[in-house]
Design a protein around this nucleic acid. Sequence first.
DNA 1: AAAGATTGAAGGTTCAATCTTA
DNA 2: TAAGATTGAACCTTCAATCTTT
Lengths: 146, 146
Amino acid sequence: MSDLTADEAELWHLWKSAADAVRTRIGDELAAATGLSDPDFGVLSRLIDLGAGTLRQNELAASMGWHRSRLSHQLTRMEERGHVTRTAVPGGVQVAATSAGAAAIAAARPVHAAAVRAHLAALVPPAQRAEFAATLRRLGEAATAD
Amino acid sequence: MSDLTADEAELWHLWKSAADAVRTRIGDELAAATGLSDPDFGVLSRLIDLGAGTLRQNELAASMGWHRSRLSHQLTRMEERGHVTRTAVPGGVQVAATSAGAAAIAAARPVHAAAVRAHLAALVPPAQRAEFAATLRRLGEAATAD
DNA sequence: AAAGATTGAAGGTTCAATCTTA
DNA sequence: TAAGATTGAACCTTCAATCTTT
């Protein structure tokens, strides 16, 4: 009901800036070095890691926590870019990384790892890491009964 | 270069989930209760706080750290929704909140404050707040020479 | 009917190109 | 010319409506 305290407002501002900066920096480095967007990277990663390059569209969506429609739109774009193919199979659609898609994700992995390290992991002091992780876990958890 | 360690990967995953959850929850509550999107809220807040309801478009963009084009697109939509007006003035454009816009932001403020408190501030333990803020500040700061 | 998937529209962001005006 | 602003295209996300197949 009442306004935020100065402390709360500062925390909110710092949080927004940090969330924005980390997302932007990692995404920009990934795109600049590999041409893959963040969603591209996520989709290709799961195809390779979970399905050795191919998964049912439905499983892919579930593994990413995405709605059908979001994945459908994303795959339409990735298909046009030559990263994946879609094939109708009984009961759904089979998604497969193309060789270009596999090559792109292979090239992108070390770039992504380096960016995560540089823009996130390296900036959290070792002594604080456990507590920081615990707080993040609390923030990410499903809201309890309001 | 090398892969992320298990700790680094976990931190990255927790960070992404938390950033996503906080943004989504606050944005959803704001939209559900007031019809304002996050960008709408930001624009109207600054118009009221910095300019008593009206600012030069250029100043508005600078105060938000937005590119001209982003603000231009956003204002086009907000004008259509009746939240702001734009008027040509010597050297630029004057943006003003309409009475509907002013009413919307007045109604939205307590909702936003409550959401920030519920989904962010209240979940950071008081004992950890200072260190947490310091880490966020480090994450948000401009990258030093790479 | 139910599950899997697609589609279109609207909102948002970014980039490059363009227009306008001081 | 340079600063302020707009525009269009491409990308992404969400929602609701609509197939399509089992």
